[in-house]
Amino acid sequence: MDSPWKRLLITETPTKPNITANSTNIIKNGTVVFTCSPENEGTNILWFCNNQTLSLNERRNMSKNNQTLTIKSVKREDAGSYQCEVWNPIGANRSDPLTLTVNYGPDHIVIRPSPESREIEIRFKDPLTLVCHIESYPPALYEWQVNSTMNSDFSGNTIVIKSVSWEDSGKYTCLAKNDVTNLTISKDVTVRVVDTSPGKCKGFSLSGGAIAGIVIGVLVGEALIQTLLYFLFFRKNGRVRKHHLSEKNHSAHKHGEDAKMYEHSVCPKGSALPAQVMGSSPAFPEVPSESPYQALDITTADVYDKIEPLKNPQA
């Protein structure tokens, strides 16, 4: 038979336990360890999260006597209020809550509106609103870039342009940073300002950067073409000059040979050259030619001149 003193210990309601943790402000994927310290011996321990009995899984496990709760690879859903409860057949008592904060993100960035093509068409002088949505704790810090240049005119997660101009075309990038996790995420969307007024092609627009790129491309192309033409022109002229010089030298050489040949064929060695005709070439003197009919010495005479008159027989 048990003593009255022992019976009194068994029937006493457990006092409120104390709960502690190695960290109550943890970064996602870290490990947290809770410890429950009851003041009474022989009590059972239960764990609660957000007033719900804590279920165990491969990431959540307890020690043999349930005094220690370990959560590995902490996730966002692990954040909340934790308590341990001690109980015996007489009663139960629960600890004060201990809040676990899980820092995460930035994750799942989205820019609204967000077409599948990641390109937004907006009419000239229409309003434009861009909203950057981020999942992050603590809340992320936002920065906007336009065409890869930070724009200090935009702050927070929202851009509002009351009346867009042609210069508002370009790539808009939302950057978000979590100072606790030291993580940064970004996403961009292209804005095209279009003119849909009558007589204009729908969807036509050119940003300042595109126009500058076209102008530079045209100038570079023109410079290359001029350089190529300059090179081809002088190369061709060089060939022509060389060809003309070669022909001139060849002609002079041939001319000398022809003159020498003529000299040997017309005027044999030792004979005098005929007088040159006025205006003839000194290299090729003209030789007077004589008609074959002029070479013939034809003497003409009247046959009647040869006939002598008859003498008068009477004389």
Rank of each mutant, 00 (worst) to 15 (best):
G80Y: 01
T196S: 11
M278S: 10
G42N: 08
A79W: 04
S251C: 12
K260H: 09
K125H: 11
H253M: 08
T299I: 14
A275C: 08
V32M: 02
N93K: 09
D179P: 13
F233N: 14
P14Y: 01
P309G: 03
D78C: 00
I19D: 01
L273K: 13
L56R: 06
E12T: 15
V266I: 14
N249H: 12
I122R: 04
K125A: 11
Y230C: 09
S55R: 13
E135Y: 06
N22I: 05
I122W: 03
F204H: 12
L46V: 09
I216A: 10
P115N: 03
P292C: 10
Y230F: 14
S163M: 09
T53Y: 12
L100P: 02
V146K: 10
V191S: 03
T158Q: 06
R192M: 05
Y104L: 03
R123G: 15
T173I: 05
K242M: 09
Y82C: 00
K306T: 11
V164C: 02
R235K: 14
V33N: 03
P4E: 02
S55W: 08
T11Y: 13
M1R: 13
N61C: 09
A295D: 05
P313I: 12
Y293M: 07
S265E: 12
S165F: 15
V194N: 03
P115Y: 04
V277D: 08
V74W: 00
P115K: 04
V240E: 11
C49S: 14
I109T: 02
A210N: 10
L296Y: 07
D179R: 15
F48V: 02
V240D: 11
F231D: 11
V220A: 06
G217C: 08
G270E: 01
P113H: 02
A315L: 15
M278P: 15
D302E: 04
T299P: 08
